[in-house]
């Protein structure tokens, strides 16, 4: 549902979204990477289990929560992509992290 403009000449970064590698512009956010990878939702909500995706893309709505590099519930729009970043959808409540 999103693409980079052909005129975009800036550097790109390789990240994985749900395990699949994709190259995205270096200034893009993890949420943008998910959108470029074709995902309109970044998670299922922890209350109703409904799919939710980015709304404001400026860090206010907290709807673009995703698991980034193993850390759940991160605002995808507030994290700039870095080489090798692993971005995954979040399914409901996060795991607490107890071994």
């Amino acid at each position: 549902m999103f693409r980079t403009r052909p005129e975009a000449t800036g550097a790109t970064v390789a990240v994985t979204v749900e395990g699949h590698e994709i190259r995205v512009p270096e200034g893009a956010s993890a949420a943008a990477a998910m959108l470029l990878a074709g995902f309109s939702s970044t998670r299922e909500s922890s209350i109703g289990g409904v799919p939710r995706g980015p709304y404001c893309l400026m860090g206010v709505c907290f709807d673009c929560l995703a698991e980034i590099d193993g850390v759940p519930n991160r605002q995808g729009c507030m994290v700039t992509v870095a080489p090798g970043m692993a971005i995954r959808r979040q399914h409901g409540k996060r795991a607490a992290g107890v071994e």
């Binding site: 999103f2 693409r3 980079t4 403009r5 005129e7 975009a8 800036g10 995205v24 512009p25 200034g27 893009a28 956010s29 943008a32 959108l35 470029l36 893309l57 400026m58 729009c77």
Partner: peptide, 9 residues
């Protein structure tokens, strides 16, 4: 934001 930060449309 997408347009500004990544030339994304």
């Amino acid at each position: 934001v997408l347009l500004k930060t990544g030339d994304i449309v």
